[in-house]
């Protein structure tokens, strides 16, 4: 900042307040809508004050779902989403930290090739390779299973690349000191590298959990039975009913519920998340 002027401060605050309103207003509308009955939307106006059906909406949706829109109970879908997000986040971190460790700390033939192959997959997100991936998953009989939902999304380069960059900043002497201290490769990884990566792991966990939770296209393709639907799919199914008006109150109930777990994760891990993004403990 160059100077502090009162009107500059005011302008800054104005911009921030407008920004917050733009972000918060849709969330507010969603929460309000989830407290109304189905008929309150017929007028075409979106209500802006709370209604009286909040409890009814949430309990019905969580336990019974809405069969007219082909939506099973939300609890089941949320469970599926949670499993998917957790398995993707944990799986990605576990695989990528190990492969980054191998690439940075071991000399083996084809090391550079391996790194570049991993790196190139950055250019191939799920959407690009979705047809062949679907074929593989279908041939392996993994449709309608947690394995089918998660495994194709676990293989990713982003996290490997981030861990590699972090490991490269760890001084070599640390590894040499550990070798002299009698720590083998796995012990060094467990006792030194893993604790040092703690904040990076936390930051990645937050990002990957939300990434997994928000998956839409892939679950839509590999699940055909209600028992494996995820909640993001549920929103789509309910807002996209044939020959009827979407029931906005229950759609918004679902949206609000779908928002909660990522919020909990972000708020709960905020401190570590920020640390992992800005500082390296060396």
């Amino acid at each position: 900042m160059i100077d502090r002027h009162p009107w500059l401060d005011a302008l800054a605050h104005l911009v921030l307040i407008v920004g917050i309103l733009i972000v918060a207003f849709p969330v507010y509308v969603a929460v309000i809508a989830s407290t109304h009955g189905a008929n309150d939307f017929m007028s075409g106006l979106v209500p802006l004050l709370p209604g009286r059906d909040m409890l009814a909406n949430y309990t019905t949706m969580l336990t019974e779902g809405q069969s007219s829109s082909g939506a099973p109970p939300l609890l089941g879908m949320m469970w599926n989403s949670l499993v998917m997000a957790l398995v993707i986040a944990v799986g990605k971190i576990a695989i990528s930290i190990l492969s980054a460790y191998a690439i940075v700390y071991f000399r083996f033939p084809g090391r550079t090739v391996a790194f570049w192959l991993i790196f190139v997959t950055l250019m191939l997100p799920v959407e690009v390779r979705i047809v062949p991936t679907f074929k593989v998953v279908a041939d392996l009989g993994l449709l309608d299973s947690y394995a089918g939902l998660t495994i194709p999304l676990i293989a990713s380069a982003t996290a490997t690349f981030l861990f590699r960059q972090f490991f490269l900043t760890v001084p070599d002497e640390l590894m040499e000191a550990a070798r002299i201290d009698g720590a083998g490769p796995l012990k060094f990884f467990r006792d030194v590298l893993l604790p040092l990566s703690r904040t990076n792991i936390a930051a990645l966990f937050v990002i990957l959990f939300i990434y997994g939770w928000n998956q839409y296209l892939w679950p839509l393709m590999v699940t055909t039975t209600a028992s494996h639907y995820t909640i993001v799919m549920g929103i789509k199914r309910m807002s996209d009913v044939a020959d009827a008006l979407p029931q906005w109150n229950v759609v918004m109930t679902t949206v609000v519920l779908a928002m909660l777990p990522p919020v909990v994760v972000v708020v709960g891990m905020q401190r570590l998340f920020v640390k992992g993004l800005i500082e390296t403990e060396k």
Partner: peptide, 30 residues
């Protein structure tokens, strides 16, 4: 022979202390 089995101890230029361990643990690790 592996460095650990040579019965030597080394002091590095940048100290190479384990940053996440206390001083006690740094001394005790080996």
């Amino acid at each position: 022979v592996d460095p650990a089995a040579r019965n030597i101890a080394m002091v590095f230029q940048n100290y190479a202390l384990y940053p996440h361990m206390t001083v006690f643990d740094n001394l005790a690790y080996g």
